[in-house]
Design a binder for these strands. Structure first.
Length: 339
DNA sequence: AACTGTCGCAACCGCTCTCCT
DNA sequence: TAGGAGAGCGGTTGCGACAGT
């Protein structure tokens, strides 16, 4: 698309008949703010004339919503905001306005800019595709980036002590992000043929606490498998492909939830051009209303989250994992680590 | 000091959606 | 139901600020 902006009117003498474009002056801002404070914006198209501005209504609306609105929050995004954006983006994609509704005081434009200038790069550095939120396909690269992936996992593990509706959605998305990351790590460990010595040796760069974290996740999922739910079927150094990362939920008595959609599970080697992240598959099935208003008590994410909670016990398995990280006496790894 | 490259962000464009008649 | 107007959204661009040479 060739969209050359008209030469900016900055510093130009304005023809009264020409709608001004480009940066807003403090005087224009003041006029707009004064008018909206007094009369409200009403019709944006009519506003500029009424407010004495030589701008189009659209420009006035954008200036107000993105910059002049009194409830706008300025300054750097916090770590928590950053994580919320990543999580919501994994669910909603580039629906910036939908994401913005979960971040009071932040505008869609600001979030979009922050994503494009910071978060995209950050995810790429961690070896994660910012579009699909899946690790990039090169397995050796993935292993090389394992420390960053695990760091991202820890980063995602925000406390979830406030279960208001907005945070529910974020928490669900956080769970998914974690599952997604682990799933892809496990894919690498279960590739057929088995990981090479070289590939496994890369694990040596992963801090030992992260080994414990991985191990605990795998152990817990093996327990799920033992319960007849499918589990992830992890067998260290096994020579077969990983059968299914997610539990087979179709037999679960959860009729109120749209859970059968998980029948289609991403495989270790998606067909080129048909790579659908599990998160995206879920997104396609989610009632948009549930996502946007965050008030539903029966979202797919909740169903999945409840399932996880049920199977892992009252305390989240992630808390369990973290406890093991603190407790240095946890079980040794079931696979060899090459120096 | 001058030049060049990179980054961040405000603002624009064009398309889509929603509402009304 | 069709069509027009207004509003909203996502993608993109231009430009100032800053860092590096």
């Amino acid at each position: 698309m060739s969209k050359k902006r008209e030469p900016t009117s900055k510093g130009m003498m304005e023809d009264e008949n020409v709608i001004k474009k480009g940066p807003w002056t403090p005087e224009e801002d003041q006029k707009l703010v004064d008018y909206i404070r007094t009369f409200g914006h009403g019709s944006w198209r009519a506003l500029p004339k009424l407010a004495g501005l030589n701008r189009c209504g659209k420009s006035c609306r954008l200036r107000w919503t993105n910059y002049l609105r009194p409830d706008i929050k300025r300054g750097k995004f916090s770590d928590e905001e950053e994580q919320i954006i990543i999580n919501l983006h994994s669910v909603l994609g580039n629906k910036w306005s939908a994401i913005a509704t979960h971040l009071p005081g932040r505008t869609d434009n600001e979030i979009k800019n922050f994503w494009n200038t910071h978060l995209k790069k950050k995810l790429l550095q961690m070896g994660i595709d910012p579009v699909t939120h899946r690790p990039r396909t090169d397995h050796l690269n993935l292993l090389a980036n394992l420390p960053q992936l695990l760091a991202a996992m820890n980063f995602s593990n925000l406390p979830m002590n406030s279960w208001d509706n907005a945070l529910r959605l974020q928490s669900d998305a956080t769970q998914l992000a974690k599952i997604q990351l682990l799933q892809n790590i496990i894919q690498v460990l279960n590739t057929s043929p088995p990981p090479t010595m070289e590939a496994l040796s890369l694990l040596g760069s992963v801090p030992v606490n992260d080994h414990h974290q991985l191990y605990e996740y795998l152990r817990l999922n093996s327990q799920l498998e033992g319960l007849g739910n499918g589990g992830i079927g992890f067998v260290p150094n096994s020579s077969h492909n990983i059968p299914s990362t997610f539990p087979n939920l179709q037999d679960q008595p959860m009729a109120d939830h749209n859970i059968n959609q998980f029948n289609s599970i991403p495989t270790a080697d998606p067909i080129p051009g048909q790579e659908f992240s599990t998160v995206n598959q879920m997104e396609n099935k989610i009632n948009p209303t549930d996502v946007s208003n965050g008030s539903s008590t029966s979202t797919t994410f909740e169903a999945w989250g409840e399932f996880m909670d049920d199977e892992a016990g009252d305390s989240s398995q992630w808390t369990d994992i973290n406890n093991h990280i603190i407790d240095q006496s946890t079980s040794p790894l079931p696979w060899p680590i090459f120096p």
